[in-house]
Design a protein around this nucleic acid. Sequence first.
RNA 1: CGGGGCAUAGCGCAGUCUGGUAGCGCACCUGGUUUGGGACCAGGUGGUCGCAGGUUCAAAUCCUGCUGCCCCGACCA
Length: 424
Amino acid sequence: MYFSKLFVPTVKEDPSDAELISHKLMVRSGMIKKTAAGIYSWLPLGLKVLKKVEEIVRKNLNNFDAEEILMPMVQPAELWKESGRYGEYGKELLKFDDRSNRGFVLGPTHEEIICEIFRSHPKSYKDLPVNLYQIQTKFRDEIRPRFGVMRSREFLMKDAYSFDIDEKGLVKSYGKMKDAYISIFDEIGLDYRIVKADSGNIGGDISEEFHILADSGEDLIAVSDSSDYAANVEVLSYDKDPSELEGKKSPDGKGKLKIKRGIEVGHIFQLGQKYSQAMNVGVKDMDGNSIHPFMGCYGIGVSRIVAAAIEQNHDDRGIQWPDKITPFGVNIICLDPESDEIMKVCSEIYSILQKSGFDPLLDDRDIRAGIKFKEHELLGIPYSIIIGPNNFKNTKLEFGIRAQNEKIDIKLDDIKKYLGEKYD
RNA sequence: CGGGGCAUAGCGCAGUCUGGUAGCGCACCUGGUUUGGGACCAGGUGGUCGCAGGUUCAAAUCCUGCUGCCCCGACCA
């Protein structure tokens, strides 16, 4: 993409209504625009990142045998009354009537719908396990939305639901999803922990959360300093002061606990039969008896991951995107777009990189060099190739690495090789 | 929902206490000089001062009500 054709409304000053660094940077880099409290529009740059995260999630789930579907955001109140959550879920559930006064809700989660879909097609144990997921906009009327897309009312979520004939199958499906999550978060490239969690209002027995570590995280998690043990302090401290946990022996017997802050970006649950019972979902077992299948549900906050990635990867100049979710792979900064010969080299490099799949951006705008450098740092594209009159004469270029704020001279012919190494 | 704060040009703000014809910076447009780190000079565009009522000769400013937004708390996949 040529920068001159992009709609990226950058802003020099921090927005007055943002507190968190990721929120400030997302607004300043023109990724998002607030439409109402906790409700955001995604602009081209932000949407590109969101789509990349979404695609990593989709690809890995497909690899682990989950099937994608798309359920409605508007759901009949009837189904929520049937599960008992219509009254129970609380004010987060946005309720409204259609023109004929039929009650509806805006879906904050989809257990009711998935059960309704599943039960309307008679199944036997032979058809299980089934694992269905969707990536969809959710709405939760949060008491207090805050921090930009980190805790918004409308947000993009991946939610998956598994059905098994028995507990043993559920444990297996759950384990498989956990493995899928591990490959997702490994691929995205953020520092995260899997923590034991309180299953909260969704219900069920066993649940684990995936947390991206960041000082601004809203959750406190206790991690062992010498094993991979980690737990949300909610499940450890009861009424005690979380700081008392610091330095205590880890419950798994290995090492001592340290308190860290995390951003919850994934949550996996073994629901058991809670919803299949409430929603009267039946499956025939080997003896021909109808039983309620064992369900699991698995969420990932796709839009929240974008904000969390910035919380974990920024400096005082702007964002530093991880390679896998950057809006552009490399920024070719042309310092003299008026010069035909310099632009020619730039566009040649551009098309080579594009063909090689590096998703290049070419800053061809006729503006001062300083602005291009500042905006490049703000936008956080991991690599830059700087081509201007000075280095052009020597048939040399500068290669910039955003994470290190460092530039090195390289030969034109070596660019592809250098980027190739970086990407592999 | 309790406590606190804010609302004036696209963005960030001053002006409000003490009422008197709305201002600054950035951005944007013109021209010129510049041109490897958010340039400079000159000129210019842009506002029913959140909304509705009230007080007054006169309201951004005082009074009443409402709405929106932010922060702290409770709550939360």
